[in-house]
Computed example of a mutant assay.
Amino acid sequence: MQMKKTLSLLSLSLMLSLPTFAQNIFTAIQENDIPAVKYLLEKGANVNTKDDQGNSPLIAAVKNGSDRAVLLLLQRNPDVDVKDKTGNTALILAASVKNIRITDLLLTHYPKLDAKNSTGATALITAVQAGNIEAASTLLRNGADTRAKDNQHKTAVDYAKEANNAEAISLFSATAAAAAQKSK
């Protein structure tokens, strides 16, 4: 009888600790506590859980700009195309973070390059809007669609021209020229 009671209490405490355990991964990521992130992952933290903002641990790590946490999470094969409450994927968010290593890491897991958020922006559009030419260039090399339009019917090229961003305009011109050369 005592054994059953102990097992019941142990099971109950384990069940009650699971939401806290899942939340701890977000706290560890927010605090950029890489050893804690690693420990929690080794102990079975769910890499596809979501917080109240719809962030997965991967999305939280990208928002935090932590390439080390992103790498640890990617080693656990999370859903790289999961979206937060505003429809952003990790790749869309990475395009606005000035840390090209995060974009490169995500691309090794073959995310949907042209996924759109709630405003219709793709990672390429987001990169141009953020002035992140390095990310835009990387996305183009990996096959991002320059013709994708957001909810305002604008492409990344349109945003580059609107901002009079000569570097981005030059990048798109070079990409178009390379594509024309390939088709010959």
Rank of each mutant, 00 (worst) to 15 (best):
M1D: 07
K4G: 04
K5F: 11
L7P: 02
L10F: 10
S11V: 14
L12T: 05
S13Q: 15
S13Y: 14
M15P: 01
S17V: 12
Q23M: 13
N24W: 11
I25A: 04
Q30G: 10
D33A: 14
A36T: 08
K38S: 12
K38A: 11
Y39R: 08
L40I: 03
E42F: 09
K43G: 06
K43L: 13
N46R: 09
T49M: 02
K50S: 07
D51L: 09
N55Y: 04
P57R: 03
L58H: 11
A60F: 05
A61D: 09
K63V: 02
N64V: 14
G65I: 12
A69Y: 00
V70D: 10
L73R: 04
L74T: 00
L74S: 07
L74Q: 01
D79S: 13
D79W: 02
V80A: 09
D81A: 08
D81C: 12
D84F: 06
N88K: 08
A90V: 06
A90G: 02
L91D: 05
S96H: 09
K98T: 14
N99T: 13
R101H: 14
D104K: 12
T108S: 11
P111C: 12
L113H: 01
K116M: 04
S118Y: 14
S118E: 13
G120D: 02
A121N: 15
T122N: 08
L124A: 02
I125T: 10
V128K: 03
Q129A: 10
A130C: 12
A130V: 14
A130F: 12
E134L: 04
E134C: 01
R141D: 11
N142C: 11
R147N: 09
R147G: 03
Q152I: 15
Q152T: 13
H153K: 13
A156K: 04
A156Y: 07
V157T: 08
D158H: 08
A160N: 01
A160T: 04
E162H: 13
A163V: 04
A163D: 10
N164T: 15
N164W: 08
E167Y: 00
E167G: 00
A168M: 00
S170M: 14
S173M: 12
